[in-house]
Structure formats: structure tokens, C-alpha cells
Write a protein that binds this DNA or RNA. Structure first.
Length: 103
DNA sequence: AGGCTGACGCGGC
DNA sequence: CGCCGCGCCAGCC
């Protein structure tokens, strides 16, 4: 189990299966990052080798400069983004149990 | 040391 | 539907 939030975030993103998506907030929560911004920071620095295209905003939209690329990659996994927006209520990756099962 | 920014999220107007 | 501010963590100026 990674010590730094940086690694936990990378692990959380890598844990998202193909054909499913997760929001920055989901990743942050699953990794215990505390802030969704931290997720974006990690992806910018160390996300080139991660399935970053499976990470979307909470409302199902994507970052402007990556959107075109993101929809393309997601489409290849079978995730459609009609109107530049993925149906989070349908494609959002649902963890089977609570992430921080420390208790 | 202080202040701004960013692949965000949410409430308020 | 849009714009606004605040909180969040870390980095950069």
C-alpha cells in the first residue's frame, strides 16, 4: 500500500476498468487525496502512462484541451460521449465496497 | 515569506 | 443555462 497520496491516486486511476469511467472526485475519495485538484495535478505530472481518459469531471464532461482525445479513446472502449458528455449515472465506475475501510 | 494557478466540486445567484 | 466564490493540495513565481 503506497504511502504517498501521489501513488494512491495513480493506483486508484489504474484500478478503473476499461469500459468504465470515474470522476476526479471519485479518484480523490478512493485514494484519500482529500482534494480532486490533487488528482488533476498527478495526471498532469505522472498521468501519461495511466488510463487518464477514464477520468472525467463529476458532471460527465472532460477538460477542454483533452476532450477530443478523451472521447476518442473512450469510444474505443465502448463508452459513448453524446454531446461531449458521458452518462455518469450509467458508466460511472462503482466500487464494490468503501475505499477507506480502515475501521 | 506571500500570492496565483490548475486535467476539480459544490453551493449560491 | 450561465457566472461567481470558496475549499482543497501541491507547485511555481
Amino acid at each position: 500500500m503506497p504511502d504517498t497520496a501521489h501513488e494512491r491516486i495513480r493506483a486508484a486511476i489504474a484500478a478503473v476498468p476499461a469500459g468504465r469511467v470515474a470522476s476526479y472526485g471519485d479518484i480523490a475519495a478512493a485514494a484519500g487525496a482529500g482534494s480532486p485538484r490533487y488528482v488533476g495535478w498527478v495526471l498532469r505530472e505522472d498521468g501519461q502512462d495511466l488510463p487518464w481518459h477514464r477520468v472525467l469531471r463529476a458532471d460527465g464532461t472532460a477538460a477542454p484541451h483533452l476532450a477530443e482525445r478523451q472521447w476518442e479513446l473512450l469510444a474505443q472502449e465502448g463508452v459513448p460521449a453524446p454531446g461531449g458528455r458521458v452518462r455518469m449515472d450509467q458508466w460511472r465506475w462503482a466500487p464494490e465496497h468503501t475505499p477507506d475501510d480502515d475501521a
